[in-house]
Design a protein around this nucleic acid. Structure first.
Length: 189
DNA sequence: CATATGATGGACT
DNA sequence: GTCCATCATATGG
């Protein structure tokens, strides 16, 4: 089942947890790319010191106030990061897709990444966008109504969810907002 | 225009 | 474990 606006228009941490085990699909030429989401992070509004949703709105962070399912892409350390906006429209929040387990189009991903090990294809937020050829062109799209992107809830396998503090942030909240599938080989290190 | 800054990745010891 | 290339943004002069 394709995830809709109601799914994404909830609290960031709930969306981040529920995205684990879901499938991220891109219609791509020369072939479909598909990955099982195995690692996410939740970001909130101005009360979250690690969030980009500060008082000042910019071209990048203004999407955090948009409706659930909106795509937010931005560059960090020379890599594009892919986020899906959460919460009701007008309330800032987003979930960062940090890692997926390649399912389909693996040969294409190997070429895009210039790597041969499956574990190296999408086991990190910058690796994921490279494996799926995602860039600023996709900023402002919407995964609930896109022609090329969709997120599907069709997991059959059982799994346990583990959590930790978010990676690479200088000041984190007390609660843990990084979620990942326990013992999955494609979670970032 | 100049420069500092990352929600990183890869190479290396 | 350490080091550093990376480059779009944001901000200040």
């Amino acid at each position: 089942m394709k995830l809709d606006g109601d799914f994404f228009s909830r609290e960031s941490d709930k969306v981040a947890r529920d995205l684990l085990g879901c499938y991220f699909v891109r219609d791509y030429n020369p072939g479909v790319l598909k990955g099982r989401i195995v690692e996410t992070e939740a970001y909130f509004g101005p009360e979250d010191p690690a969030s980009r949703a500060k008082e000042k709105k910019t071209k990048i962070n203004e999407n955090m106030w948009k409706s659930g399912g909106t795509i937010l892409v931005y560059m960090i350390h020379g890599h594009w990061l892919f986020n899906i906006v959460t919460e009701e429209e007008g309330v800032p929040g987003a979930v960062l897709i940090r890692a997926v387990e390649p399912v389909k189009g693996i040969g294409i991903m190997k070429r895009l990444r210039d790597r041969n090990k499956e574990r190296e294809l999408a086991s990190g937020p910058g690796k994921f966008t490279q494996a799926f050829d995602i860039s600023e062109k996709h900023h402002g799209g919407d995964v609930t109504s896109s022609d090329i992107f969709s997120v599907l809830d069709e997991d059959e396998e059982e799994f346990e969810i583990d959590s930790s503090h978010r990676i690479g942030v200088s000041e984190d909240l007390e609660e843990e907002f990084r979620f990942f599938i326990e013992d999955n080989k494609h979670v970032s290190k």
